[in-house]
């Protein structure tokens, strides 16, 4: 195998992780806001559902996704009602869908935590000053949960980079199209190309350590800021 393939898989991995992170932030923000303000007992159910990918084996999750997203699956059938005729598995779209669901808790949980820490009084005060919902969100919620967003984005991105099971099930192992770094490494080990597996593993290891140090230093900054209040 040529060395250009290695970088192809790295590039693909970064692309999937970037797109998935953006989608996660767009979907996760309203979901997390809703959950953070929820008082109904249903909140527990929702929390459990969001946390599911943390405990479920990725292969199980991938398997169900494959069933629902396959050309004859429920989701594809439903979308075809609206004139959708594309494919949701074994391509980039499949990878992103799988990653979004798999990394959902890593976006939603830090955001729920950040949102819950914003005192309701601040938002009520802004209401009495005629600030609309979007205005309040932009001027109070976003600045006060900035660190939560940083943690959510970093963790979601990193977690997507590191996934294996879901990607393999939904995306398959198509070189240049769905073969991400983690699958690449698996293939190299299978074919006993340890030196290449070493290189890629070392890059991922370095990446993971950097990200974690970043996240923990951000957490420390938040904690210190909260203490000084």
């Amino acid at each position: 195998m040529s060395s250009s393939l290695e970088f192809g898989s790295i590039f693909l991995t970064l692309k999937v992780a970037s797109v998935a992170t953006i989608v996660l932030l767009i979907l996760g923000t309203p979901l997390a806001w809703w959950m953070s303000r929820m008082k109904s007992p249903l909140k527990v159910v929702l929390e459990a559902l969001v946390a599911l990918p943390l405990v479920l084996p990725p292969t199980v999750l991938g398997f169900y996704l494959l069933v629902f997203l396959s050309p004859k699956g429920a989701v594809t059938n439903f979308l075809s009602l609206f004139g959708f005729s594309g494919q949701l598995t074994f391509n980039f779209t499949g990878l992103v869908i799988g990653s979004v669901i798999y990394s959902l808790p890593f976006t939603v949980q830090p955001l729920v935590h950040a949102f819950s820490n914003i005192p309701t009084n601040l938002l009520d005060a802004a209401k009495t000053m005629r600030a609309s919902f979007l205005d309040r969100f932009k001027t109070i919620v976003l600045p006060l949960s900035r660190n939560g967003f940083l943690v959510a984005a970093t963790l979601s991105f990193a977690h997507t980079v590191g996934e294996f099971g879901v990607v393999l099930m939904v995306g398959g192992n198509i070189p240049g199209s769905t073969r991400v770094v983690s699958i690449d490494i698996y293939n190299y080990v299978e074919s006993l190309e340890y030196d290449k597996a070493h290189t890629l593993s070392a890059i991922l290891l370095l990446f993971a350590i950097t990200v974690l140090i970043l996240v923990y230093s951000m957490n420390r900054r938040i904690a210190m800021k909260e203490k000084s209040c």
Binding site: N121, L122, D124, A125, T128, P143, L144, C229
Partner: peptide, 12 residues
């Protein structure tokens, strides 16, 4: 106008 018990000033 509303003055809250804990003042609710915007900390940022």
């Amino acid at each position: 106008g509303f003055v809250f018990q804990d003042a609710a000033l915007f900390p940022h």
